[in-house]
Amino acid sequence: MKFTNHSLIAKGYNMGPYYGLIISVGFLRLMTIGAIKNRKNRDDIFVVAVCILTILLQSFRKNTVGIDLGMYIPGYELSGQLPWFSPVFNFEIGYRVFCKVLYMIGVSQQLFLGIVATICQSSVFMFIRKHSKFPAISIVIYLTFGLFTFSFSGLRQMIAFSIALFSYDFVEKKEWIPFCVIIGVASLFHTSVLVFLIVYPLYYWKFPKNTVIFMFPVFIFEILFGNMVVALMVTIYKQTDYQAENTGAYEAFLMYSLVWIAAELFMKYTNEYNAYRNYLLIGALVQGLGLYHSSVARVGYYFMFFICLVLPQTIADICKDDWKLRFCITSALVVCCFIFFNINTGSGYLNVSPYIPFWED
């Protein structure tokens, strides 16, 4: 989706606040490394600091920064003003009740955006802190590879995703009942989160070593005939308002596919990392169909997120103890992150750029 608000285009694409946030990740990492010897305390302080900056950036944005806010802001007001459980747009009941409660206690539209940002970003950063051995790199990837940009716009789905992340601990513990309960709660905010249920079996699924060879034809098939698959899906579900169309998101599909292939070839095997690879494969496959339908691509965010954990660990496994090679590859990765972020978000995707603070007209 391209940015078309000509009044804002006249002001230029203001990406400065986003770049400032990303640069602050490196600055805070260097500061904490130099000042704090205990690694756990150092990582805790670092992640919390970046999380707070990220929340503030989202909280202080104008209610035009995020294309879906044109629906969510009026929807917040309607949910608060109408009787309990009244239908509002296509909002799920959990989200409507959430809005109703906040409206009743006097939460303004701006504070509402801040509360949503706090819920979503805190969950993501907490997950990264707990599961990533390289939180700084994981955070840079998260901020630049699509999901962060999406969180400015897709409020319901992002809340559902942030809730679903809490279910992951029960996957590791093989406790499927609380896992399903949490996903059920998340679905009250966005029903698409039900696809996250496959995270449980995929955690334990072991693909054969030659999976890469078999997946090449699948990827090629999606590129060539994905439009037919999407058109069939639309027909089956009788979604006459939706049609298959080329979204042009080839860069994202190529990126996720290549990262999965690299992880499959070089990442060391553990149950946890095997699960991350499996999730990333699903994300790549979904993104392949997302080339022909933006709604399909949005579902892929539930799985693409794990690239934040897969990519840093793959680099570490490739480089092993060669810190010079790791530095070079990591530096190249950061450059690629900036380039991808500039192409994706800087083009006006989801009206997230230009960034406009709420106090500006």
Rank of each mutant, 00 (worst) to 15 (best):
S108Q: 05
L254E: 05
N5P: 07
I343N: 12
L350K: 06
S187P: 03
L28E: 06
F305N: 09
G34F: 15
I198N: 06
A284L: 00
V296Q: 00
F166S: 10
Y276K: 10
N342Q: 11
L113F: 11
D169A: 14
N63S: 13
S347L: 03
G154V: 11
N14K: 06
C99W: 02
F89P: 00
A10T: 02
P354W: 05
I223H: 00
K209L: 12
S151T: 05
Y301R: 14
D43Q: 00
P17A: 04
T64Q: 11
V335D: 14
L143T: 14
L78S: 13
C319A: 13
S151V: 01
G70W: 01
E175K: 14
G348P: 03
F303S: 05
T64I: 14
N246S: 14
R326T: 07
Y355M: 01
D241Y: 12
Y103F: 15
F189S: 00
I318N: 10
Y302L: 12
A249W: 07
R96Q: 08
W176E: 02
V193G: 06
I339E: 13
P312E: 08
F127T: 03
T149K: 00
L143C: 14
G348K: 03
V229D: 00
F207C: 03
Y279D: 10
V124T: 14
M255T: 12
S294H: 09
V310R: 08
G75M: 04
F152S: 01
S347G: 04
Q157W: 13
I33Q: 12
L254W: 10
Y349L: 05
Y203Q: 07
Y273M: 10
D317S: 08
Q243M: 04
I22G: 10
L325F: 09
S138Y: 07
E175A: 12
I213C: 06
T247M: 11
R129D: 02
N90R: 08
P201E: 03
M267H: 10
R298A: 11
V97T: 00
Y204D: 11
S122F: 06
Y168H: 11
T270Y: 02
P201T: 02
